Amino acid sequence: MVKAGQQSARRLANAEVRRAEALEMFLAGKTYQVIAEELDYADRSSAWRSVQAALAEHAEHHKELAAHALPVVLARLERLWEPQYEAAQAGDTKAAALCLQMLDRYSKLHGLDRIQVDHTVTTRTELDAEIETLVARLAAATTPTPTTEGRTP
């Protein structure tokens, strides 16, 4: 007799296998309708969800691999940097070009090439000052003054 926990594990394993097959079929150019029919999904939207889940799993796996590879790549760049930088400072133009390429790669690895700085420059011209003066005069001219009507002397 199969225990309930074993049934769940089998069901999960079967779902993972189906997702992997659905992704393979999708990458081979099959439509969601065909994937649904061949893998016994209820409808093509279920097949679509399965493919999207498989894509998300693969994306997460690639992120993990990249996170592990980044320190290795950075260590290699650092080992290459010092001799090339010294040669570039001594006037070696090829070494200088390599240093620029390494800086570019370093910037890309750290996302420094994607940093965007938003800034706003405000200038104040004589015309702006004149407009402000006119607005202030107009406001002063239209301000109501208290009246003495209704008072008895």
Rank of each mutant, 00 (worst) to 15 (best):
N14T: 13
L39I: 06
L98P: 00
L109S: 04
E132Y: 04
E57Y: 00
L100A: 14
T120F: 09
R79C: 00
R76F: 01
R19L: 04
K30D: 08
Q116K: 13
R11H: 11
L103V: 09
A13C: 04
T120N: 10
T31K: 11
D40H: 12
D118V: 05
S45G: 02
A36W: 03
G91P: 15
T93A: 15
Q33T: 09
K108V: 12
R44K: 15
L65R: 13
W48G: 00
T148Y: 08
A22Q: 07
L39D: 04
E126G: 13
A69R: 01
E60G: 02
F26I: 04
A129T: 12
A4W: 11
T31G: 08
E126I: 05
P144G: 03
D92M: 13
G91I: 09
A56C: 04
T148V: 11
L134Q: 06
G111E: 09
T125S: 15
A67D: 13
G150T: 07
D43G: 14
A129N: 09
E86Y: 06
Q7P: 00
L23E: 07
G5T: 14
T123S: 05
Q116P: 00
R79E: 03
A141I: 10
Q84N: 15
D40K: 10
A53F: 06
Q7N: 07
P71L: 01
